[in-house]
Amino acid sequence: MPGRNEILSALAKSALDKQPMPVIDIAPNMQDLTGQFETNLAMVAGTLHRDATLELVQEKVNSLIAEGLQVLSLVEGVTGNRTLPATPHELKDIDYAVISGELAVAENGAIWVTEQHQHRVTPFICENLLLVVAEEDLVANMHQAVTKLTLESGSCGAFIAGPSKTADIEQSLVVGAHGACSLGVYLV
């Protein structure tokens, strides 16, 4: 590849002297992680359900189904009324998706969600998203989160902090841009 070799040899002419990688050593704020998480999740327009159980999530799902809504659950122990379709495009009418999160980050309300089946678009295309996270998987900050998260070769994952949003028109915040329009988090 001519481009590759030329770019690499041009880099050899860099004027900067080599700099070492700094040591990243930031003390985490371990005080009341659940409280911190709740505050920050609210700031990013998500809602927290503390001390939840899978039964509680199932109850919520049942009431949604009773309202006539389409619910897909990928969480073991919670059953919706939809199953995974053949193509990701068929997920376009899912009203609620229930998905498990691997980690929750107290400092910013983000939840790490891994790829759980072949349709990567699920947490983004659903109208509303419900994430289920174990309270013991709450970490203080992003430094801790990246040492714990799973990101297998050939897969993907995302930190999701609240529902999708935009402020592109005159800086007014509108919740519900292209991804989910609401996010509920169940700490179990």
């Binding site: 990243i24 990013v44 400092e107 309300g109 992003m142 990246v146 040492t147 297998e152 902090a161």
Partner: peptide
Amino acid sequence: LDSAAVLLRMLARNATGQPVTTYSSMYR
């Protein structure tokens, strides 16, 4: 990823004042 964490902590805070961008997705 340790480096990414440092930058992700500042990116949205410095851009719009949000604690983090809504979606920080990693494709591997």
